[in-house]
């Protein structure tokens, strides 16, 4: 098994998340949306984050962008260290989310696209205005140059006749085109990291494949890193270099994509793979994971997956497992691998 070199030179790491804890304070109690997650995003790589809805993958992204609905939801501990291209480092969790420094990172260095292409563009401004606004916000260029750049980037995301479509409003475009326009807007300032939160979930499958291929091409062309959030293991297989599996706010497994697909270790990851239908494999039954995700207000002690786990032991129900490096670069949080 070709295992990726883990110890990359420091300048290759763009973002380092350490023991991030993000909580929501609701009337029913505290929800630990992200509960001690660590990972790094490396230059030119695609990090896939996979998990069910509500597992904290989107909240992790919003924590990095500092777009949480504060003070209802906020980062309570941990660090998010960003290494800007011009050198140095900055801990995003320590910035004021409205500060000029944070706003320079947001959109300029770390761009984000969202799941709902139908509603993620403002209906009263043209596509062009919305992209030009982003360009002029972060780069010292005149409107004409910004417009040229907008047309160029729309062309790169395969929107036909960009010089004409730049004047159109979002409602004149299809869902796929709107998502392409969102990607164009995100890329317009040459970000070093693109966070894509379920970018193709709302689109139909053929368009999904085209957009993913386009994203992969642009990622190489721009040399940027992508943090790809999805619940679709197929998308992960097509796009990711490294994968992080999350369950109820915790990271349960992390590995190189091929290693994870060939040798999933955590019972939850194994369950995910068993529940994907594969065309052409006869006689193999789909096995859903038994039970359901625990309520965030009433989490079991120990491993959160223990109540659903077919291989749960006594200790699983009492104590949360530590993270074990089973193979170089392959981490799993499970007592089975102690």
């Amino acid at each position: 098994m070709a295992v990726q070199e883990r110890e990359l030179p420091a300048n290759e790491v763009l973002l380092e998340v350490k023991d991030l804890r993000t909580q929501f304070f609701t009337e029913q109690g505290v929800v630990k949306a992200v509960d001690g997650v660590s990972f790094t995003i490396k230059k030119g790589k695609v990090l896939g984050i996979v998990g069910e809805s509500g597992c904290g993958k989107s909240i992790t992204a919003l924590s990095i962008m500092r777009l949480l609905p504060e003070p209802r939801g906020k980062i309570v501990s941990g660090t998010i260290t960003f290494y800007p291209p011009e050198g140095g480092s900055v801990d995003i969790t320590r910035l004021d989310r409205h500060s000029a420094e944070m706003r320079r990172i947001r959109g300029r260095h770390i761009a984000m696209i969202f799941q709902e292409p139908m509603t993620s563009l403002n209906p009263v401004h043209t596509i062009g205005d919305q992209i030009i606004e982003a360009i002029q916000l972060h780069q010292d260029v005149d409107k004409e140059t910004a417009r040229k750049r907008a047309i160029e980037v729309l062309n790169q995301v395969d929107i036909p006749h960009p010089e004409r479509r730049i004047n159109e409003y979002p409602h004149q475009m299809s869902g796929g085109q709107r998502q392409r326009a969102m990607i164009a807007m995100a890329l317009s300032c040459y970000p070093s990291i693109l966070i894509a939160d379920e970018p193709t979930t709302a689109l139909d499958v053929t368009i999904q494949a085209k957009i993913l291929r386009n994203m992969r091409d642009l990622q190489r062309q721009y040399g940027m890193a992508i943090m790809l959030i999805t619940h679709d293991l197929g998308v992960i297989g097509q796009m990711a270099d490294e994968v992080l599996v999350m369950y109820v706010g915790r990271k349960v497994e992390q590995a190189d994509v091929r290693e994870l697909f060939l040798n999933p270790l955590h019972p939850y990851t194994q369950g995910l793979f068993r529940s994907i239908p594969l065309i052409g494999l006869k006689g193999k039954k789909l096995v859903p994971i038994a039970g359901s995700v625990p309520s965030p207000y009433n989490l079991p002690p120990g491993c959160y997956f223990a109540p659903r786990c077919p291989r749960a032991m006594d200790i699983c129900r009492q104590e949360a497992p530590a993270e074990y490096e089973v193979e170089p670069g392959h981490f799993v949080s499970c007592w089975l691998y102690k």
Partner: peptide, 13 residues
């Protein structure tokens, strides 16, 4: 609405 979040994600004040 999502597009307000998009505007914030751009880095707008």
């Amino acid at each position: 609405m999502q597009y307000v979040q998009t505007a914030r994600a751009k880095g707008l004040p």
